[in-house]
């Protein structure tokens, strides 16, 4: 584990950005490689609808 962490910190990191694209854009502008994962909270974050979906989906 130590060796892996060491390599990670010595090498140039690749970022995985989940959700809000703007965070990844900032890193990309700073010259880093960014892999974007599109994600949004279920039902746009509405807790009532999310609860319904828990039951139905």
């Amino acid at each position: 584990m130590k060796a892996v962490l060491g390599e990670l910190l010595q090498g140039r990191p690749v970022f995985v950005n989940i959700g809000v694209r703007a965070f990844g854009d900032t890193l990309r502008q700073a010259g880093f490689e960014v892999v974007q994962v599109d994600w949004a909270p279920p039902a746009g974050g509405d807790p009532r609808l999310a609860a319904l979906l828990d039951e139905l989906l």
Binding site: A40, A43, G44, L49, L52, L53, L57
Partner: peptide, 8 residues
């Protein structure tokens, strides 16, 4: 409709 709401 479930998938529509889930994914907005």
């Amino acid at each position: 409709i479930r998938k529509v709401v889930q994914a907005s």
